[in-house]
Design a binder for these strands. Structure first.
Lengths: 320, 320
DNA sequence: TTGTAAGCGTTATCAG
DNA sequence: CTGATAACGCTTACAA
């Protein structure tokens, strides 16, 4: 593999001059420079990442660590991050699971955006302590070099459920996500608070897992239950879609017999029948914002205020 | 940041001994070793990627380069790759666009899996020439260190359309993907061949772009056309879903008035009404296989035969 | 069993 | 404007 040494030799200059030319330093004679660049091109030379990083202590990479590649949410956030990083000439590196930890520990990235509830706080804090900024989404975490951004889950759900109550609904159920999910817990908090605020004492709590199949299963058992709620708020859209599918198969009409809403505003919600009412945030913009903050943090070294994403209710057919 | 030097000093040994201990070399006295490991733990030491890579010429990373983070296909392939790489102690690095090129050129990965038709052959060939294996999906490319795996698009579509013809359909349309897409072109080839084989001289060709919104738009204009086909084969599921949505809004019944099928077997096809008939391959298993081949290639240095993924027809409601 | 030292491919300081 | 050279953090002969 061609190294800078080969380029220098081919161009008949010293290594340092070659380096200057390749890095667009102004102190190289134009003729020399073009000779060097030509040589580099001829040899298909690119500076080796490791060597450069070792010397400069800068990777040019931002890591985005997610809990799995399957989520419909990620894609939008990632697109946003990607676009913004591109603007700032940073590379995006997406990883998951154990790979994330290793990339973090070995310092293969200049900064990390964490979208993975499985990465323990501890790991993040230790990484941040070494000076690289960490941006965590969907969890509260504070500390040096740590920036957190969370959705206003409780507030949004509270507002939404209040609206629903105003429409006359009284008999509610909550279809949960995993018990240890920050988003799930905050959404439930908002749900509960809204009921409390309107003096509604009772509701069913259905234990789901944020997946379509989980929602479907709950839906099936619910079909056989005698006292069905009139409105089910689902902790995310996927559960809601599973529910609706089960109900449709059983001939339960949504929203006439039972109204349903979700959270996230995933694309699929627009293509099922009935279209899903949901609470959504602009994930792409969120990604862009987070990336912007990250880059600023790295380049200016200042702690910049990160904003929480704004949410919006999307009224659609599954709940009138 | 703690370096191996700090660890060595703290443990009262030389750098090399520290290195031996940290790498589980058998030549270190147990007591010394445990002293070193303790020191490392106390200092929260991890070897720096760049320094190690520079010396060993091994990154431990496999890059997976995709054309965007949004596709519903990727997630499954990525999950498959991820799981298999985990087994073999390789890190997965996913990237896209310009970042992909840079990671490749700077040699931040030991091997690359390419799932991105925008990455030019040229770039891949040059990378492979330097000795790192490249595995390309959904395109034909041969050369040193290059391994390709493609779906049998033409064969599968040919088989499917033949079945459809056997059901009595005669009046077909093809809703395409982008003109320069390998998958699209091969699928069209299979479609055309099946019609030819059964003496069907005529069909409509609708120009789409693989997106839901593209399919929707085509669907809308088609609603107003006077001579509608009886069966539309879509180059992918997303186009098909867009089409169906447009037809539903216009009151055209699927499949009674017009039958539709897609390609890819994306999850959403199961949750729309009517459920989408499609041709699918097991993307997750494909990912696993590709990762396995990649790891073997790196570790054994042999060119191993890569298999093309098997496909299957999923008959569902959109076409009886 | 442990230590010394060379070297991986760069960049950057300093001298010419 | 150009060239020697030290240094980044690590691994690995080779020496002790």
């Amino acid at each position: 593999m061609a190294t800078i040494k080969d380029v220098a030799k081919k161009a008949g200059v010293s290594i340092s001059t070659a380096s200057y030319a390749l890095n667009n330093q102004p102190n190289v004679h134009p003729d020399t420079k073009s000779r060097i660049l030509e040589a580099a091109k001829a040899l298909d030379y690119f500076p080796q990442f490791s060597a450069r990083h070792l010397k400069t202590n800068r990777t040019g990479n931002i890591g985005v660590f997610i809990y799995g590649f399957a989520g419909p949410i990620f894609s939008d956030v990632l697109e946003g991050i990607h676009m913004k990083l591109l603007e700032h000439h940073y590379n995006i590196i997406v990883s998951s699971g154990k790979s994330s930890t290793i990339l973090l520990q070995e310092r293969q990235v200049d900064g990390a955006i964490i979208f993975d509830s499985n990465l323990p706080n501890d790991t993040l804090i230790r990484y941040a302590k070494k000076g690289s900024p960490v941006c965590v989404l969907d969890r509260y975490l504070t500390g040096d070099h740590i920036i957190a951004s969370v959705i206003d889950n409780a507030g949004l759900v509270h507002m939404f459920i209040s609206d629903v109550i105003a429409k006359g609904y009284r008999d509610f159920a909550y279809l949960s996500g995993p018990k240890d999910s920050y988003n799930n817990n905050m959404r439930y908090m908002g749900f509960k608070a809204a009921l409390d605020a309107h003096g509604i004492k009772h509701h069913q709590y259905l234990e789901g897992d944020f997946t379509i199949s989980g929602g479907y299963r709950i839906g099936q058992t619910l079909c056989e239950a005698k006292n069905k709620p009139r409105f089910i708020f689902c902790a995310n859209d996927e559960s809601a879609i599973g529910l609706i599918t089960a109900f449709q198969e059983a001939g339960i009409r949504v929203p006439e017999d039972l109204a349903i809403a979700g959270f996230d505003n995933i694309q699929m919600g627009l293509y099922i029948t009935p279209k899903l009412t949901t609470i959504g945030i602009d994930h792409r913009r969120w990604g862009e914002h987070v990336a912007e903050v990250m880059v600023n943090r790295i380049q200016q070294g200042e702690t910049i205020k990160i904003n929480n994403p704004e949410g919006k209710i999307y009224w659609r057919e599954s709940c009138e």
